[in-house]
């Protein structure tokens, strides 16, 4: 991938800020999902841009208790420094997930259940999520404002029209909207932005002993890649020549052809 121009980053940033301000004005109560990864951390940074230094909505964390220790340290530090209204939701155990999914997807589905619980309890109408189109082919088909049924289902066959900055902000009682301010960003864009803005990130993204995490997930279903990239510049250089997909290390994407689509159709991020 070719590096993003600064002008390109400015345009992406302006669009994301516009989306965040629309979400905050039109969809309440609102929360943001934070996985402590580079994308959702950039999303919170953009929220601070949009709202002049503060994050005006709660930040929900779907905790499987399976994140790596560095990730939890990072969470506590950033939540304190950025003064986040952090809501940690413990996800139900894997044994309570209904059958039919392959093992890693089943493990990932714990987050779907955790999200459902927090939505039911807090009655959020809007959930900000840091997914991007270039991560995964079904995410590429998403809307920026993506309505979900009261059961949390994504009806991919009947998505609303979305153009010229007009978003579906109204949903029926009990339903909610997923809001994706980073949808048009790419992996390289996010790293360039981290670099330009000096946004903190978990050190696991940098190589240690010839390996680094390109995509951060739970320790039981994520594997690091071969890499020598010790800083963002080197990460970007590496991404410019690789053809391996970003989520190659996320086991749940590769168990079955439609595993990820099925996860998403029932409410995964």
């Amino acid at each position: 991938m070719t590096a993003t121009s600064n002008r390109g980053l400015d345009a992406l940033e302006a669009e994301s800020i516009y989306i965040l301000r629309e979400a905050n004005k039109c969809v309440q109560p609102l929360c943001a999902l934070w996985s402590m990864g580079k994308d959702s951390t950039a999303l919170l940074w953009l929220a601070r841009k949009a709202f002049f230094g503060r994050v005006p909505f709660p930040v929900a964390l779907l905790d499987t208790e399976m994140e790596l220790p560095e990730v939890y340290e990072f969470r506590d530090r950033i939540a304190r420094e950025w003064n986040l209204d952090l809501r940690v939701e413990l996800c139900p155990p894997e044994s309570s997930i209904e059958g039919g999914l392959p093992p890693a997807a089943r493990s990932a589905a714990r987050k779907t259940y955790g999200l459902r619980r927090i939505l039911e309890r807090e009655k959020y109408r809007g959930v900000l999520v840091g997914i991007r189109r270039d991560e995964q082919a079904t995410r590429a088909k998403e809307r920026i404002f993506s309505p979900r049924s009261p059961e949390g289902d994504w009806d991919v066959r009947h998505q609303p029209s979305e153009f010229w900055g007009h978003y579906a902000t109204d949903v029926p009682e009990g339903a909610h909207v997923r809001i994706h301010p980073l949808l048009h960003w790419t992996e390289v864009d996010v790293w360039r932005y981290h670099q330009r803005e000096n946004i903190p990130f978990v050190s696991l993204y940098l190589a240690r002993g010839g390996k680094r995490y390109r995509s951060l997930g739970e320790k039981n279903i994520t594997v690091p890649i071969e890499s020598t990239a010790g800083n963002i510049e080197e990460i970007i250089a590496e991404l410019e020549v690789t053809r391996a997909p970003e989520r190659a290390g996320r086991l749940m994407d590769h168990e079955r052809e439609d595993a990820f689509e099925r996860l998403r159709a029932t409410g995964y991020m």
Binding site: M1, R133, D134, Q136, A137, T138, A140, K141, V156, R157, Q159, H184, T186, E257, D258, E261
Partner: peptide, 18 residues
Amino acid sequence: ALQAERDQAVTIDATRAW
């Protein structure tokens, strides 16, 4: 990418690739 799209060999929703 959608199962329905591959089953019916028709694009249902717009996508984006770089």
